[in-house]
């Protein structure tokens, strides 16, 4: 069983800068493919800041994208299997431990997949893809254990 829930809207800001400039925010910078409670690593020189962003010192790009993303959370023992309906990555504990995040695909939607905790998977998606994401997740969830 997987519990699929739409998350309430949340504040987020995309930060692009050199690691040196990003570090001036005073937050620990997550390593590649990792996330903290405040920051998701999305790519080289690219992080998603959660909550109110600070102001880095030095050249940087800070862009409010709060309304770009919606989030869906998945809980349950079969959450990884459900995600593997549309996401080709290896989501086992060894390959995708808690705290991991990455940009990937779910079906035909680009997503940010963030495993906030062992049983807390977050799927961030551009807002117009939310109905597609939810419909695909829910249809797949109904068939998840059919063998």
């Amino acid at each position: 069983m997987v519990d699929i829930r739409e998350c309430p809207p949340f504040r987020c800001t995309l930060l692009q800068a050199t690691p040196g400039v990003a570090a001036t925010l005073g937050l620990p910078l997550p390593a590649p493919l990792r996330a903290t409670d405040h920051m998701l690593w999305l790519g080289p020189e690219e992080w998603l800041l959660l909550g109110e962003p600070g102001t880095p010192t030095g050249p940087a790009s800070l862009v409010d994208v709060s309304d770009r993303y919606r989030a869906v959370s998945l809980h349950g023992a079969d959450a990884a299997a459900l995600l593997n309906e549309g996401c080709p990555l290896d989501l086992a504990d060894a390959a995708f431990p808690p705290g991991h995040c990455t940009r990937t695909l779910f079906g035909k939607a680009e997503i940010i997949l963030w495993r906030a905790a062992a049983d807390d998977w977050r799927v961030l998606v551009a807002r117009s893809f939310t109905p597609y994401l939810l419909a695909l997740l829910r249809e797949a969830a109904a068939d998840l254990n059919a063998m």
Binding site: L14, Q16, A17, E45, P59, A60, S61, V63, D64, V65, S66, D67, R68, Y69, A126, R127, S128
Partner: peptide, 13 residues
Amino acid sequence: LRVWLTSTTEHWG
């Protein structure tokens, strides 16, 4: 160049 790009298509109505 010190410049970065961010898609905001879906942020703005």
